[in-house]
């Protein structure tokens, strides 16, 4: 299946309608998830309505790891099997992953405010997500720094894999660090997940996932169009001299 998409021409034809269609589907699921989260789900007996923030926060935390895993797979197939589309896929997914990380950070601190009444609490999970956010920024910076796309693609793929090796180590070291400095009572994760919270949670995750698919596909198409435009311009110069 992967190889059929590897050919840019077939990819462009196939995804002609997939982008907007997925976007529409994503919005529908999102609305349905929000409705469940805000209206149907009961308030948490301890945190009251603040627990509803979980429906936008926890799926975002899952997505920022999921998107990075997607980028690792794309980087591997770009380095090993030299798929032309693989590094375009990774490049297109990075900004979406960074946005999910940002959502996770902001909603996390908003959720923490009523509990710890500070805007930013150095909770172990939030801190690891913050470091992950900088890894995303570094990845995107590599793409913008190197001119030729093939070189930028391979360099970004290497950085992505280096990041992948380091993320578990960073996660572990931050957890080790947070147990060392015993602070605030409960962390976000201690909340038990009541049964009727599970469905809205996974609806929101599905919504995020479908939106991610839509955004990556459209971003890839935009990237391919701009590369073709760049190619035509360069060929025009080439034919002149």
């Amino acid at each position: 299946m992967i190889s059929t998409f590897a050919n840019p021409h077939r990819f462009m034809k196939f995804t002609q309608w997939m982008g907007p269609a997925l976007l529409g589907l994503g919005i529908v699921i999102l609305v349905w998830g929000l409705y469940q989260g805000l209206v149907l789900a009961p308030a948490d007996y301890r945190q009251g309505d603040a627990a509803r923030i979980m429906f936008v926060h926890v799926p975002a935390a899952m997505m920022c790891m999921g998107v990075y895993a997607f980028m690792v797979l794309a980087s591997l197939s770009s380095l090993i099997w030299k798929h032309a589309l693989a590094d375009i896929a990774a490049k297109s997914a990075a900004p979406v992953g960074a946005v999910f990380t940002l959502i996770c950070l902001i909603t996390g601190s908003l959720w923490g405010k009523p509990i710890w009444n500070t805007w930013w609490e150095w909770d172990a999970r939030l801190t690891s997500v913050l470091v992950l956010f900088f890894i995303y920024l570094g990845y995107m910076a590599i793409w913008s720094a190197l001119e030729t796309p093939q070189k930028a693609g391979r360099a970004a793929a290497i950085l992505c894999l280096v990041g992948a090796v380091n993320i578990p180590i960073i996660k572990w070291s931050v957890d080790w660090w947070s147990t060392l400095h015993q602070q605030a009572s409960i962390t976000l994760t201690k909340i038990s997940l009541p049964a009727d919270y599970i469905v809205p949670l996974f609806t929101m995750l599905a919504a995020y996932g479908v939106l991610f698919g839509a955004l990556v596909i459209m971003n890839m198409r935009a990237e391919i169009f701009s590369r073709r435009a760049e190619m035509l311009v360069q060929r025009q110069y080439a034919s002149m001299d």
Partner: peptide, 10 residues
């Protein structure tokens, strides 16, 4: 700096 600093965390 941008690419290396997050990896300096541990």
């Amino acid at each position: 700096a941008l690419t290396a600093l997050p990896l300096y965390a541990p």
